[in-house]
Amino acid sequence: MTRKTKSNLQVIGMYLFIGVVFVFISYPLLWTLGLSLNPGTSLYGSTMFPENWSFVHYKWLFFDPSSDYLLWYKNTLIVATITSICSVIVVSLIAYAFSRYNFIGRKNGIYTFLLLQMFPVLMAMVALYLLLNLVNMLDTLTGLILIYIGGAIPMNVFLVKGYFDTLPRELDESAKIDGAGHFRIFFTIMLPLAKPILAVVALFNFMTPFMDFILPSIILRSPENFTLALGLFNFINEQFGNNFTRFAAGAILIAIPIAAVFLYLQRYLISGLTSGATKG
């Protein structure tokens, strides 16, 4: 077998594997999509490809006067965007310190917090409620954002620090000799090179508010402050109001912005490849 045919076979094998994964991924997703287009309310009787499909659930979400969906959407986008931006800033600054400076706690700091975060915290949610009540941030998006940013620090710092560690030290040291300040080195040298991992961090933090319904259910009270996940969860959690099809429609609309952001950030994920040459 020549090298070329072997390579071709490998490529075909890879495509095949990816193809199989595609099928597994898309089956439930198509189901969800089909469900959202079914005019009824129950899972049963819904089909993947409904005969008399309709946008009735989408219409309800957007136009029904008793639907707060758009408001929730707006809230979630606000929370997600701010969380994402702030996290990238806070995380990269901390990671920079961990990667390039010596200070007390450098050695075990990240690991300690990673370990602490492994404790199951359902019981501790009450504490966050009490804390936010104390500082008057209960039922506010600010409180939610702060907790999201804080909770995400250890793991994200770990990731970004790991990435910074792979960047050659000579780069910032030579800049230091040239008289560049701490922040200048950080902003002009480190940040641009770390784009791929920062894109990952941005993505993670953008997604959390779309996914999480537990924390918002503890600290958000007024329906006008709800996030999507919380509002959506209530659709199916209401005592006797199982409304699976509407729920599916709401879920599909969550997936869209996330996929869009991912598509947008991929540019940076891939840019790592091209800039790889300069890193060498």
């Binding site: 009824g40 309310t41 129950s42 899972l43 049963y44 009787g45 005592q239 006797f240 199982n242």
Partner: peptide, 26 residues
Amino acid sequence: TYDVMNGLFRDGKVGAIISGPWGIPD
């Protein structure tokens, strides 16, 4: 499950079920 039972009944495929007033509108 409730979802299945209610759906079948609503679609006229079941003779009788046990349910409560909350199910009536549907």
